[in-house]
Amino acid sequence: MLLIRCPYCEEERPELEFRNAGEAHIARSANMAGESDDDFEKFFFIRSNPKGIIYERWRHMHGCARFFNAVRDTVTDKFVMTYKAGEPKPSKLPGVAK
């Protein structure tokens, strides 16, 4: 069971309290109705599924109930960092070579 640090509670808590919510940084268009088929396809259906670093959303379901973002390595399952929803994608990751 993973330990996940909730950036709102500022505490590491067991995975049982959390729920994964899919890939992060996929912004919903401000002009949703006007999106092209291709853009909608990218927005709704296409996910990166990387081997390595993934940016993903989690919800502290049985804690503060907040959604937040996390950087995780899909190979080692290790969390690199977590940060609050709305914050930009971190440009530098602690302990990860470019």
Binding site: R28, R59, A85, G86
Partner: peptide, 13 residues
């Protein structure tokens, strides 16, 4: 409830 919270917290904060 989860769906509503998701949009409220992340898309329409």
């Amino acid at each position: 409830m989860n769906h509503m919270e998701d949009y409220l917290q992340t898309e329409f904060p």
